[in-house]
């Protein structure tokens, strides 16, 4: 069963950056794109379970800090080895200044 979770404030995330959000033993990454849209994926790289929150956001790509694998954080698509498996993505909505994710 999915539910909406209040994850963070809009201003908690710089443009073209991400933050880590942990909830009930799961880790998520919430992104703010250069065009000021918000996205959410699993927080751990599908390659070796490294937290993506320490990685680098370039346009719509998140690069893992350990091995430089890349994903499109809008679709979760794996773009560059050593990642081969896509990331799970989650629906995001904004209510006022708050970011909610559907998990």
């Amino acid at each position: 069963m999915t539910e909406w979770i209040d994850a963070c404030a809009k201003d908690d995330i710089d443009p073209e950056d991400l933050i880590r959000f942990d909830h009930q033993g799961r880790s998520f990454a919430i992104y703010r794109s250069p065009d000021d849209a918000f996205y959410c994926t699993d927080g751990l790289c599908t390659h070796e379970q490294v937290h993506l929150a320490d990685g680098l956001v370039m346009d719509h790509v998140i690069e893992c800090p350990k091995h430089n694998g890349q994903f499109d954080y809008r679709s979760g698509e794996a773009l560059r080895a050593p990642v081969c498996e896509n990331l799970n993505t989650y629906t995001v909505k904004m209510e006022g200044e708050r970011i909610w994710i559907l998990i």
Partner: peptide
Amino acid sequence: WRWSHARHHT
């Protein structure tokens, strides 16, 4: 070697 080097960093 891409995979070998990834292992070297892990």
